[in-house]
Amino acid sequence: MRSDRGQRAPLGLKIAAACGLLFLHLPILLIFIYAFTTEEKSFVWPPPGLTTQWFAVTWNRPDVWDALSLSVRVAAISTAIALVLGTLCAAAVSQTRFFGRETISLLVILPIALPGIITGIALRSAFALADIPFSFWTIVLGHATFCVVVVYNNAVARFRRTSGSMIEASMDLGADSFQTFRHVVLPNIATALLAGGMLAFALSFDEVIVTTFTAGQQQTVPIWMLEELIRPRQRPVTNVVAMVVVLVTLLPILLAYYLTRDGDQIAGSGK
């Protein structure tokens, strides 16, 4: 019998935990306030006044829209590729045992385990060696490679909970491989794939380190922001874009959490 229910935490622990969480969240909340400031030239606090005019200014900036459109297209295609590759890999690894199984897990995790700069410079030097010019597809190539792992993690966790006997039962009842996949396997893993796909989208949408090496002259949203951070041109616009980026990545994460919260492994715990 466990006796650890209904206990109260020591006050010191409560304060330390609360301070830790505040440390994690206050800086992000600050972004929301700065998006409304009237100050243009510096980061002065407290803001001298509040205004919504920067939203209109940002709305009319074509470079912001171009960056956003490129980011969304890259993220969508990388997610699609990662979904296919990650699911195939997860199915193979979880349904059968074979020689080199551990190696495959390692191979999938490697692009995210090694520092991003290594992936980035490796891809860049490979493009240079093979004389591939930078394009939309070179960005996708890099993003899809490290997005595979999030889909894979989610799918593997779900496959582990899906009993193999269901597939056998379906086959015994006369369904062929394709029908079994369509009517038994897919409904089982659908929410895990959806969660994995959304996390992959968020990961790609936010990625900057690998992208700086594979993008050439094109600007995704993070590259645009990096450019503004190094050489600030219009700070209020950057504030607004930062706020929008926080909101855009928030939604997929919350959705992915609700889709998988009953599982033994919750989506996103291994970014």
């Binding site: 969240h25 992000i28 972004i31 996390l199 936010d206 922001m225 951070l229 926080v246 990545t249």
Partner: peptide, 13 residues
């Protein structure tokens, strides 16, 4: 949420 919030936005903050 902080884990998945944009890396650059966090630095910017």
């Amino acid at each position: 949420l902080p884990l998945w919030s944009s890396y650059l936005v966090k630095i910017y903050a």
